[in-house]
Design a protein around this nucleic acid. Structure first.
Lengths: 213, 213
DNA sequence: GCGCTCACATACTACTTGGTAGGTTTTTTG
DNA sequence: CAAAAAACCTACCAAGTAGTATGTGAGCGC
């Protein structure tokens, strides 16, 4: 037995538990992990605890699975544009853009991812949880490394200038992740609106604020 | 009676309750607001609940006061450098730099401030709490406005270029606030080290990543 | 149509936690 | 130095919550 349940990749299997994941993500986003009770999630589903505990062994496992799904979408959004013949600066811009769009379009999931990063500091209770949390942080670091790698390429091909690649990437990703805090979709928002915003963000990151000359 | 207790500015009065504030801030930073019990804070103080409830009427009031103190230090750090004869871009850089340093040197408090921003989304329970939370968000917006104002000046005096001042400021502040998530002081860190880091961050924000030309 | 498994619901427990009531010690005041 | 006030501490409680044990109905193989 043991960890059969939510082990293998995200739970989008035929049972349709993506419902549980999104309901949980919404609750976690609105109230935070600790303030959200399992009953809250169940209520949002129009169900009871029984349903959730049928698929997840604990509240933390549920949280972790939401986190996994959020990170999966991040990779999904970014990896397609990170390689190509263009100079690295162009590709990096595209990656930032994709990531920003992913943040906006998976707001609840990404808010949970951000919480997960914070939770990294929080003392994870059981050893099992510590292990899982460590795993999630590894995934997060891998994600950040994607950006760093392309940024380094840019330093080498001359398309990127920075005093410190690692810091620069953290700054850029921080700016984008911060979206999960201030961005909220307006009532009649379209994909175009989001792309405009994403472009503005990428422009800020790539061009900076200093006027040229 | 009512709100005499933690009303007037931060609690650094003669009673020395800065202890309570910092203990609370550390707990909130390490475990988050909801996961922190009043007993946790008391334990860190080497005291019991009684002491805390003698000064604060509720857990939320304690949180709010920590938040206030954090914001107070933010203003304290930034306002001295926002005016002057230099072009706006220079002053804005200095503001970012000061804010970044303040984040690093008041890490616990600032982590709470960040949580407060997130909590804005969370449903605040009582009407009283909603009012207080709204007040805190007003302060936060005022803080952001400081940066926007100087940024606008920069657009006018030609020292700053951006496609959208509001977005650009949010991007920059997001990048700096994100420090509260990844920055942790190294064992033998000096003020110099922090200044170097702050300079790199400001450089990233102001110059961007694109190579000139 | 019989058993078996899956997909839940119900009812309950053990425990945590915010907040309170009242007592006790220390400090201030007159 | 007496009395009042401030600064705490010690139970204590009511409410909420993670998790469990058990029940139940629907589908499905045969």
């Amino acid at each position: 037995m043991s960890s059969e349940k939510s082990q293998l990749s995200p739970r989008i299997d035929k049972t349709g538990n993506i419902d549980i994941l999104t309901a949980a993500a919404e609750c976690f986003m609105e109230q935070g992990y600790h303030a959200t009770s399992i009953d809250d999630v169940a209520r949002r589903l129009g169900a009871t605890k029984g349903r959730i505990y049928h698929y997840y062994r604990s509240k933390t496992e549920l949280f972790f699975d939401v986190h996994r799904e959020g990170m999966r979408r991040n990779f999904e959004a970014v990896t397609p544009v990170m390689k190509g013949p263009e100079p690295a600066a162009k590709r990096l811009s595209a990656m930032f853009r994709q990531h920003a769009l992913s943040m906006m379009e998976n707001l609840a999931l990404e808010a949970v991812v951000v919480q997960g990063v914070e939770m990294h500091r929080f003392g994870a209770t059981t050893p099992e949880q510590r292990r899982t949390l460590a795993e999630l942080m590894t995934v997060r670091n891998d994600f950040e490394s994607l950006f760093k790698r392309v940024a380094y390429e840019g330093v080498e091909d001359g398309s990127i200038r920075t005093s410190d690649v690692s810091v620069a990437v953290k700054v850029a990703l921080g700016a984008i992740n911060w979206l999960s805090i201030w961005y909220r979709p307006r009532p009649a928002e379209t994909r175009d609106d989001r792309e405009i915003l994403a472009d503005k963000i990428v422009d800020s990151i790539m061009q900076g604020l200093n006027a040229p000359g």
